[in-house]
Design a protein around this nucleic acid. Structure first.
Lengths: 242, 242
DNA sequence: AAGTGGTCTAGACCACGTA
DNA sequence: ACGTGGTCTAGACCACTTG
């Protein structure tokens, strides 16, 4: 299973890779407990300290969560994680507020060349395109377009009349077994076109913050493209550089 | 020096605090080597492993850098760190490009109420206000205003006729002994006013990405307020969510 | 050759949660 | 009482850098 040391790949790195592959393969699902450090150490024939070091790195990487006295668990997309890691809009007092969301459109069509490139799809593959209007304190604030590969999310929004929960990543995880682990965002400023301005109650040409996000699974597969247009009159995008 | 264990503050946390205070106090300066793990362990009468754990956390926090076979050093603001941690503008191919900068104004005056709040100053304290135009491929792309507390940076830009290097954080460190460790950024989209549009070669009302940054030292003291207006026609703000 | 950080082990004891 | 993770120790050996 594990190669001997001196092969230049440290044991704890091999253990990290092993744990990641077991999680990616679905052997351990989000929210489930994994074997204790001592049992993993016995199974892999290494010391507990080495297993501990591997787990520590995965905890820092938000892949696992330790709970003292209980055990170590695969991370889930609860509201806290969504809020702290994947939602960066705050009001001007610095408070995060989760917006409502209202699906305005949900269609299937072939991916554009751009979408195919961002999601690493073959040309001609189908995608699901969801449009939402997100309100904060009942004021329409964000226009959001979500592009998903149809193959992985085939049943999404079909039978339930496009009713979708607020936090999409939770249903990706629960209904499709797809866990978003990281994302790349590109932010820019654009002038609202006539339609956007109307939907957000602004003048045409008003400045909007455009956020383009590609969300990735643990094994770096891109699974969602999301483009948001935010009215930043009363809100902003908050980022901490460490 | 260190309290006994069982006092509920783990030894390695006490060691972290101790190391941080020695760095903050200037006992060890950026770029300098700190004592070896084994010597620190002897000095503090703990095991090497405990010192190692403390140092590991500071390395992950970008406070220290380990160099195998050589020793452990206090982090410096070299170009790499500036680029990877504190500069998030990329061109639309995803390449980071460091802009030139040209100081257009450098004045001293009393802090506005807003500036005083952001920099935790008393009302009436003086600040240095620097304005720069930053060019990428010789195209004016970013208008930047930097506000610094005069007390800490008293001689900045006085004798040298407002000539300032591209990377300000390096001279904060070298000339004033102030190391920027983290920053909070707030991004929003605004419409260019007439003056901004002219300086950036745009139409009035064009959308600009406004970035407001407060930079902090290791002990969380705010030391710089920076407001940037970016033309994001050919560039964007790149952020990775982990 | 000597000193540094990097990996790994074996074992002790503590703090916490569950049964 | 038991099992879990959390802290700490003492020591071995490896990999790298410098004199």
């Amino acid at each position: 299973m594990l190669t001997t040391r001196k092969e230049s790949v440290p044991l704890y790195v091999q253990i990290i890779d092993l744990l990641v592959s077991r999680i990616s393969s679905g052997e351990w699902s989000p929210g489930e407990i994994i074997p204790s450090e001592i049992n993993l150490a016995r199974e892999l024939d290494v010391s507990q300290g080495t297993v501990r070091k591997a787990i520590t790195e995965l905890v820092e990487n938000n892949v696992l969560i330790r709970k003292q006295g209980r055990g170590t668990f695969v991370s889930t997309h609860d509201t806290d994680r969504a809020l702290f890691h994947f939602f960066h809009i705050s009001d001007n007092d610095g408070h995060k507020v989760l917006p409502d969301s209202e699906v305005s459109s949900c269609r299937r069509r072939k991916a554009t060349r751009y979408e195919a490139a961002k999601l690493a799809l073959q040309t001609g593959e189908k995608v699901i395109r969801i449009e939402r209007i997100r309100k904060i304190d009942s004021a329409p604030t964000i226009l959001e377009t979500v592009i998903l590969p149809e193959q992985a999310f085939s049943e999404l929004g079909k039978n339930d009349d496009c009713k979708l929960p607020n936090m999409l990543y939770e249903i990706y995880e629960k209904q499709f077994g797809i866990t978003i682990h990281s994302a790349e965002e590109q932010l820019s400023a654009v002038n609202a076109n006539q339609q956007q301005a109307e939907l957000l109650g602004l003048e045409e040409g008003a400045a909007l913050l455009m956020i383009e996000r590609v969300a990735l699974t643990l094994d770096k597969t891109p699974v969602e493209l999301r483009i948001s247009y935010c009215n930043t009159a009363n809100h902003h995008y908050q980022n901490t550089l460490l």
